[in-house]
């Protein structure tokens, strides 16, 4: 198990250079894990990403857990995941300590007021990027509008469903809709054959 220190330190390094999380991490993982160390290959990496994306939690952490597990079992998974966390956690602790001391400074306040506008634009752009893959037909469009309304106007609605409840409802709706779709599809086929 002398893999563990190397696993940990590799993921500390990856965690320190991954800006923005998610797919931004793919080229870095490719270089560190596929080219340099041959711990995995590109196909496996892509699989990890697609699964990491459709399981709860942070994609980057999910991928780290996967690779660590494959390399050295549960202990490997632990080494890789905590390794990935190490850099960002230390850095944010430093920034948080700074911010709590300088938050009242007018210059800092003006700067962050400007930055918030930029954040808004970055989120809009992320939504536009995700739109085509998520809202693919009438069902998904309606679901989008319902969930949006229930989340955005939760304060004025008579029943307030927390975000976790909305996630569960959307999952159930998705399974139901796809089962109905499949059944209708096979019925159509049966009808055509007869």
């Amino acid at each position: 198990m002398n893999d563990l220190p190397e696993l940990y330190s590799t993921f500390v390094r990856i965690g320190c250079v991954t800006f923005g999380g998610g797919y931004a991490m793919l080229p870095i993982l490719e270089r560190e894990l596929v080219d340099k160390r041959q711990w995995t290959n590109m196909d496996e990496l892509r699989d990890y990403f697609s699964i990491g994306q459709c399981t709860p939690g942070i994609i980057a952490l999910n991928v780290s857990t996967f690779i660590g597990q494959k390399r050295a079992g549960i202990r490997g998974a632990l080494a890789a995941t905590t390794g990935f966390l190490t850099g960002p956690v230390i850095l944010i602790l430093i920034i948080a300590a700074f911010l709590t001391n300088f938050a009242d400074n007018p210059l800092v306040q003006h700067a962050f007021a400007g930055i918030r506008v930029c954040v808004c634009v970055l989120i809009i752009q992320a939504i536009m990027r995700l739109w085509n893959k998520s809202v693919v037909d009438t069902f998904t469009l309606i679901l989008y509008l319902i969930i949006f309304a229930m989340n955005a106007f939760s304060s004025i609605l008579p029943v307030r469903i927390p975000a976790a409840g909305l996630v569960i409802l959307a999952g159930i709706a998705g399974v139901t809709a796809s089962v109905i779709k499949e059944r209708r599809h096979s019925q159509d086929k049966g009808g055509a054959a007869a």
């Binding site: 995700l130 998904t140 969930i147 949006f148 989340n151 955005a152 999952g171 709706a173 998705g174 809709a177």
Partner: peptide, 19 residues
């Protein structure tokens, strides 16, 4: 797969609300 058919639009719906 079916669950994600519903989860994907829900996820960006809530991101829109956050925006």
């Amino acid at each position: 797969e079916g669950a994600f058919y519903g989860l994907r639009p829900a996820s960006i719906a809530m991101i829109t609300a956050a925006c």
